[in-house]
Amino acid sequence: MKAAAAGYIRANDLPHAISLLEQSRGEARILAGGQSLIASLNLRLAGETALIDINGVAELSGIELVGEQLRIGALTRHRELASSDLVARHVPAIAQAAPLIAHAAIRNRGTIGGSLAYADPAAELPACMLALDAQIVVRGPAGERRVRAGDFFVDLFTTDLAEDEMIVAVEVPVAVAGERQATMELARRSGDYALAGIVLVDRPSGVRAAFFGVGPTPILATGAMAAIDRGASPDEAAALLEGDLQPLDDVHAPAAVRLHLARVLLRRALAATRS
C-alpha cells in the first residue's frame, strides 16, 4: 500500500520542532528513524498524520557521559548504540540489546527516542530503560521534564508523552563497580520481535529485571526481584514471575509459553550475571 501522509516539515532545530508540534494540536507526529512510523503509514494504519522530521536536529544526537549518567540523545541510532564504547562500558545491557533489534538496515535508521515513543511492548530498548531505571527527558512548549522509565510506559503503544511533547534524550545511570548486566531474548528468527526477553541489571544493591514481550508494556518483575534480593534461588524467583508478568496469547505463542520462556530467561540471565 502507499502511504497517506498529510504533510511534512523538516524541523530546523529543537524549538522549531516543539513549536510545530504545538501548532499541529495532535495532528502531526515526530518522524525520527521512521522504521515503525513509515511502515504504519505505508500500511495506512497510522491515520492521516502530518510529519515533523527531526533528523536534521543535531542537538538530539550523541552519547555523552554526564556525571554518573550516560546521556543518549533521542536521535541516536541503534547502530550507534551497538558500536559505542561508552555504551559498552557503562550500560552493557544496551550494548547487548542493540544488535538484537531487527537488522542492519533498520538499525542504521532506527533511533532510541523513536523506539521509546513507539513503546512496542516486545521491543528491547524500553525494557532496557526500565531495568536501568533511566529517566526519559521530554520537552514540550512548557519546557523540559524528566520521566522515570517506570512511569513512562503506560500501556500498549502508549506513553506518558503529551501530544505536544517529544523525547529529547534519555539519562541512564552508569553501571557501578561489581554490577553485571545481561540482555537476552528468545526470538523465532534473528531480528524478530522476541517471544520473551529480559534485561537484567544485577547491582550489588539489588537486582532489577525487566521483561519484554510478556505484557502490554515492558514489565519490572518486582516479585522475582525481591525474592532474588532475599537470596531465593533462580528457580524460586522464576516461579514468582506468574504474579509479575501479564503475557497474552497471540499467533506466535500462548501466554503460558511466554511465561515459561520468561522463567527460562531469568534463570539464564542470572547464570550469566553471576557466573
Partner: peptide, 22 residues
C-alpha cells in the same frame, strides 16, 4: 523483506522506510 535495500549517505537502509521528502 529487504528487497528495497539500498544506500543513503553511505549506509544501507530500507528504501520503503524513508520518504523521498527526507
Amino acid at each position: 523483506c529487504g528487497a528495497c535495500t539500498l544506500q543513503v549517505d553511505g549506509e544501507i537502509v530500507r528504501g520503503c522506510l524513508m520518504l523521498a521528502a527526507q
